[in-house]
Design a protein around this nucleic acid. Sequence first.
RNA 1: GGGCCCGUCGCCUAGCUAGGAUAGGGCGCCGGCCUUCUAAGCCGGAGGUCCCGGGUUCAAAUCCCGGCGGGCCCGCCA
Length: 746
Amino acid sequence: MSSVRDCIIETLIAALSEVFKLNSEAVKELFNSGKLKLTSTPDPSLGDYGVALHLLLKEYDKNLWNEIGLKLCNRVIELAREKCNVEKAEFVDGYLNLTISHDLILRDLIERVLSGDFFKELSSIGGGRKVLVEHTSANPVHPLHIGSGRNSVLGDTFARLLRKLGFIVETRFYVNDLGRQVATLIYGAKIAELSAIKKPDYIKPDHWYGVIYAMTNVLIELDRLRAELRQQAENILKLLEELENTLIVKSGKVEDFIEILTLTREILKKTKFVHDQVLLLKKLYTTCRIHIEKFKDYPELKLLLQSVIGALNEYRKTWGEYRKFLAAERRLSTAYLELYSALRTAIKNHLEAESAIRELMERAESGDPEVLATFKKITQSVLEGFKETLNKLDITFHGFDFESSKEILSLTKTVVSEIIKTKYGKLLKNGAIEVDLNSAASDYDYIRELFYPDQAGRFIIQRSDGTTLYVTRDIAYALYKFKILGASEVYNVIAVEQSREQKQVKATLYILGFKDEARSLHHFAYEMVHLKGMRMSGRRGIYYTLDELVTDMENCILRKLIKERGVFSLNPEVISKLTVANARTLLLTVEPGKVLSLDPSKLCEYEYGTIVEYAYVRAQGILRNALGIEPIEEPQKLEFKIGELIKSLTRDNEKYVFSLEEKLLTELLTDFNRILLESYRELKPNKILEYAVKLALQFNKFYEKHPVIGEKNKVVKAWRILLVYLTYKLLTELLDILGIPKLQRI
RNA sequence: GGGCCCGUCGCCUAGCUAGGAUAGGGCGCCGGCCUUCUAAGCCGGAGGUCCCGGGUUCAAAUCCCGGCGGGCCCGCCA
């Protein structure tokens, strides 16, 4: 436990101030500020803990170092042998290294676990405060994909961690059902309904609506891009005509530019831009670039050519975009022909479609019951699909909050009307309402620091047509969490790209006078998942879904089990639990702030979950065989037995010098509290996984080298059982936090 | 253009907040170990310009400055 470290540091402060003739407060400060640090030694043969003393020694001649070191060692041993279990102190190259006896540390730790103090200390951190964790909150327009999965696992794991730390945790899912995306889906779904196209039974609703959404979006986008391309083409043709004239009239020396002229004429002949023309345009583009040097003497020509190049560039970009959507159309249409032709027939003109979608949005926001009912029906059905997926991973929510709910809509109105009353809310000429955070930042340090070193900027909180924006409703939702759901602390697990928006929410709360709430609202930011060789796009219906991930992972497990144990030993419980273990831990391998990049073809190589699960099962096996107790089923009996063991060891004052593996395992076990705390403070649940894996691996090493059941020496055997017990106990806690289901046997 | 994040063996990653001893793990690769608490394990091996260049320091993967490379944000989108 930290108590040993603290004890050592305390004696070190005393010994150092004595030997170096320093004020003990000053030495203490050196430790507190991290100038002096008690760390683990790089090699156990050097001792267990060490502290680098060069900072103090550099004032002295090198010849004196060993003498000083020796004095220090003796003093430390004198002070700390009994008090802090220090066995040995050595001085090497300016380092003071200490060896400690681990048996007593382990005993202390287990005694505190058995008495409940160990966990009480942890749960005192939250102390029953109510905390709200919002996570996942994916737009209900397509199935959850691997990115949403990362969000879910991070959020769920963090919530479980908070619970262990004594917080009352509530998890919420925010349903963005008022935005353009949902309206687009509804628009498409209505067309499908009118054409009497039903969802095939074998497709999950979220997947089905994902297809409808993508198709609708693709069709609208294709039409819009076509129109844009037409316009750009016209523009280019105009420029080319001008170019042709200028070449002939102005340059005089046409032969220099004959190549360009010919190309230009060739393109001009065909007034419609289609695929093969793009190649021609490309050629013109490169030719222009090559010849641009020659235009030094003809500034007008040069200017003209530059705008041609610019226009061609634009065209190429749009064309690239267009092709992506074409590919998506091809893929979607072959997979769902009937649905495609229905949508294709109905969606003729992007302007018409867009205005229909806008109308849906307006009617929904103004509370039109018919439209709201449709929104509700379809989003509900997608959400059912979400729940099914997340259930597979043991992820559930206390509640779903709908953007379209009366409470949030009315709070949204209040937010707008309140913000306009402050000096930072401004009614623009066209009727839109803007929040000027720049001026708020000059009034409030909090807001300036929030955005620093960037400018706070401004943002629109209500459109000129009177509808609100995502951020507006999000501010209302934040208030809802504090005021109606009664949270004292809120964590929003939301992608890092929304950092700015999250700051705007905080700043606005602050302006509105909710200063504590602003400070208690935490953006738990996480980076995207990047898949090798695949660019996900919900709008085009390209994604690696969480459902696929689970299925793929299950196949990995299945294959491996068959290979290792044969077809006949397959147990569905084992398969499903290991699948959850590996899928969840896969999404937790990297810290939230870093991009998680995955190669789907190497999915089977991510086995952190099973590593931990196997160690857990193994620990149970040993306890079962050694004590005749089934650990998961008979926890009280187990604790009683362990208590007895400790008592007998204490009574007979049985000491045991731990082997390397036993020492390392003990030390790792003492890290438990610290890891949980760090993980909580730094918003890094991945540290829990990292720790659990380390613990499992160290346990394996211990297990391999030191028999427990077969050990003849009773005292040694007892100490080893204690080690196994504590490992088992802490692994249980870690599995709880990581959401890894527990197995008794594999 | 402004801002944020990241760069460590073939791949993934820890360590960086608070500088300290031989840069830890995992995957993959090579070689050993199953009559012994179930081998998804253990032991050994190969594999590293810690992106580059300066600076600070007794000491730099870590701090500072300057580059390079990658991701993200700067909408009357969500």
